[in-house]
Simulated scan of single mutants.
Amino acid sequence: MTHYQLTGEARPALTPARQMTLRFSGTRRGARLARQLAVQQFAEWTGLPYDSDPARTVALVTAELASNAIRHGSLPGRDFRLALLVLPDHFRIEVTDTRPERLPPPVPPQPADETSGRGLLIVQAYADRWGHTARDAYTKTVWAEVRLCPTVS
């Protein structure tokens, strides 16, 4: 539940069967397809069912990141990129858009009467950790990691 900004963070070396990158149109349809693909790949790669709590978390976090990319990080005619990676204990979701100057703000508590602006609060609540990187002058990536097996308390 911690927000990290890990500039220059290197991705771990993974086998091709455990990572995927695709581009989607910067539309609501693109965001919906990204969410559906993320859940499908999560279930296929981990063997966990579609209706498991981690799969639902992947759906929710992917939907929020894709929605934010379209709403706040999109330029007309530009797509966003979705990358999915299986790490040893986590499933990593990365959404890259074309607005590196529009970094995610720190997540303040939202007043109860606000009708929008809760997306990053949802990501913070459900992801084990999340952050953003801007590796060049043309793109930024907002990422989140979902624990594969929920902790037992």
Rank of each mutant, 00 (worst) to 15 (best):
L14F: 06
A83C: 09
E94I: 00
R81I: 09
T27L: 13
T57P: 06
R35M: 12
L84P: 02
D128H: 13
L22I: 10
P105A: 13
G119L: 03
A43E: 09
A137N: 06
T98D: 12
I70G: 11
L60G: 03
V86H: 01
L84Y: 05
R56Y: 01
D113E: 13
R56N: 10
A134E: 07
M1A: 12
E44S: 10
G8E: 10
T141K: 04
A144T: 06
L148V: 12
T2V: 15
G131L: 04
Y4L: 15
P105G: 11
S67V: 06
P100K: 07
G26W: 11
A144L: 01
Y138H: 09
W130A: 00
R129G: 04
R135D: 10
D79P: 13
T133D: 05
R147K: 15
D97I: 06
A38T: 05
A38N: 06
R78A: 13
T141R: 05
A55T: 04
D79G: 09
T2L: 15
T46P: 05
L82M: 08
L60Y: 01
E114R: 14
D51C: 02
A137T: 07
L22R: 15
V58Q: 01
R135E: 10
R99L: 06
Q19P: 02
L84M: 07
E114M: 14
S153E: 05
A38W: 00
R129V: 10
L75V: 08
L85F: 03
A43W: 00
T133K: 00
L120S: 00
Q41D: 03
S116N: 08
T7N: 04
L120K: 07
D51G: 03
Y138Q: 08
G73N: 06
L121T: 09
R147Q: 14
R23Q: 15
P54Q: 03
R56Q: 08
D79V: 08
V58P: 08
F24Q: 14
P12K: 12
S52T: 02
I70D: 08
T115W: 09
Q110H: 04
T21M: 11
G77H: 11
A59M: 00
I122C: 00
P105V: 00
A137P: 01
A31T: 14
A10Q: 13
T57Y: 00
K140W: 00
L6R: 13
P54K: 05
P150D: 09
S52W: 01
S25F: 11
D128T: 10
V146P: 05
L82E: 09
Q40E: 15
A10Y: 07
T57M: 02
V86Q: 11
R18V: 11
T96I: 05
V146M: 01
R99I: 02
D51E: 08
A31G: 14
A134F: 03
P104W: 06
P150Q: 03
R118D: 04
P106Q: 07
R129D: 04
A134W: 07
L60A: 14
S52A: 13
R129T: 09
S153W: 04
S153H: 11
H90A: 02
A63I: 02
N68I: 06
L75G: 09
T141S: 05
W130S: 00
T7F: 08
